[in-house]
Amino acid sequence: MPQMIQMQAITKTYRLGEVNVPVLKRIDLEIEQGQYVAIMGASGSGKSTLMNIIGCLDRPTTGNYVLEGRNLTAFSDDELAYVRNQRIGFVFQQFNLLSRSTALENVMLPMIYANIPKSKRRQQATQALIRVGLANFLSNRPSQLSGGQQQRVAIARALVNKPALVLADEPTGALDSETSREVMELLTELNQQGITIVVVTHNPEVAARTKQVIRVQDGLIVH
């Protein structure tokens, strides 16, 4: 299986005033395509920072990050934006939908930045929403949807540009257990269709559904 993610000696240091705070001390990590991985760790362990680097939202201080064979070290902001747009889907704990836009408009958003014409955007976004079971909620705004439905809109948005990798940051953190189960089933389904999934979570039940668990502690991966 080719590698989806290859990280070599990744470090991340934040500067707080005069002090350098190392958040990631040394991360070496390989995740194959089609994997379903949970990243677990206490808060402050560096798992969110790792997640942001995997998602190309942040850059490592040192080290190499290769995504699908592309070394992203020298990529510019705009190049990273395009990688996020084309290859990565995000699912957040707080859903992060545009509150003034409808479900359909929210799902269409990534396609705007992929230069997909409007008619095709509408068609693909509708398909994505049908796929997550929201066929009847296309024109609802987030405030008119339940938490589980909002998270499913977010998943549809993550899928709509046909990414290779979906990153979910505490996807069930704001949901009750029944809805959480539904959302996790949806992610499992996506993984079965070949999408690599990385979930950051506290929740052992969520981690149990994945194929591999990576534990982060004090900026290092522990086995």
Binding site: G34, Y36, N115, Q193, Q212
Partner: peptide, 27 residues
């Protein structure tokens, strides 16, 4: 490291950058 093989999504050919900016009309 535990790995379970599963069918991967076929890797798209990806240019480094979007060739055209988002159209003015869209903006």
């Amino acid at each position: 490291m535990k790995t379970i093989s599963s069918p991967a999504s076929p890797q798209k050919v990806l240019a480094v950058k979007r060739t055209d900016p988002v159209s003015g009309l869209e903006i």
